[in-house]
């Protein structure tokens, strides 16, 4: 590729990532601010956004860090929150097959939003696919890091009363849940998730309910498979 082709590819990727730029800087900012309110400055935010690079995971991580969670419970929590990425990966196997040296980073950076951009849109005409996807992934991570660092710095510099800022995590999951309830395909799974987790919370208490919830959810979903598969073409 010559330099004008590089520019064209970069510009196409930049335009495609504009919505994620808005979302990631704001969500990242909230994360950085929340983390700072627990005593972890912007360098911690930068480190986590660089190495974990996962929105919902990092919000939960604030809770795990500040609560001094054990490594085992952090590991289990990570597996449960990130398990959906197994299925993103499965649907990207063919697309990312011939991406050569870029492949490890493309896979590492496959967040919900990057997945949405790469999977949801075609590569524009005359653009190098591999470089286009690489730029999208890299730009998204830059927005995320920039937002989280800005949030951390803001929290350090401005002495606002941040009591209650932790609700941003709750708000994030309430939005995702509402969105799932609106979609026909994910409505019943989401309701099952809420009901079983709530019952487990009542029985096992706040510190021990996640593992029984996950087991209960998996069992319920397998039991309801005939009913839930009914409307899906590929499962018939």
């Amino acid at each position: 590729m010559n330099s004008s082709e590089h520019k064209k590819t970069f510009r196409a990727a930049l335009l495609r990532t504009v919505p994620v730029m808005a979302g990631y800087t704001v969500l990242g900012f909230g994360f950085g601010l929340l983390l700072e309110s627990k005593g972890y400055g912007f360098l911690w935010a930068a480190l986590m956004s660089l190495t974990i690079f996962g929105g919902s995971m990092q919000y939960v991580a604030v809770d795990l860090l500040s609560g001094g969670a054990s490594l085992i419970s952090a590991a289990i929590m990570t597996v449960m929150i990130q398990a959906r990425h197994l299925f993103y990966g499965i649907s990207m196997l063919i697309k990312y097959r011939d991406t050569g040296k870029a492949k490890p980073y493309l896979i590492f950076g496959l967040t919900d939003e990057t997945y949405g951009l790469v999977c949801g849109y075609d590569v524009p005409e005359g653009i190098n696919k591999k470089m286009y996807w690489l730029w999208i992934t890299l730009l998204d991570q830059c927005y995320w890091i920039a937002g989280s660092v800005a949030g951390g710095l803001f929290g350090q510099a401005v002495s606002v009363n941040t009591t209650g800022v932790e609700f941003s995590m709750t708000a994030l999951f309430v939005v995702i849940l509402t969105d799932n309830l609106l979609k026909k395909d994910s409505r019943i799974p989401a309701i099952i998730g809420v009901i079983i987790s709530f019952i487990c919370l009542m029985i096992f208490g706040a510190d021990n309910f996640l593992i029984p919830s996950m087991a209960g959810i998996a069992a319920a979903l397998m039991l309801l498979r005939p009913a839930l598969c009914g409307g899906r073409e590929d499962e018939k």
Binding site: S56, N180, K183, A190, V194
Partner: peptide, 15 residues
Amino acid sequence: SVLPGAVMGMLAVYC
């Protein structure tokens, strides 16, 4: 196809 929705329900309760 069904696990992501259910896990999000669980995380909402977690909050």
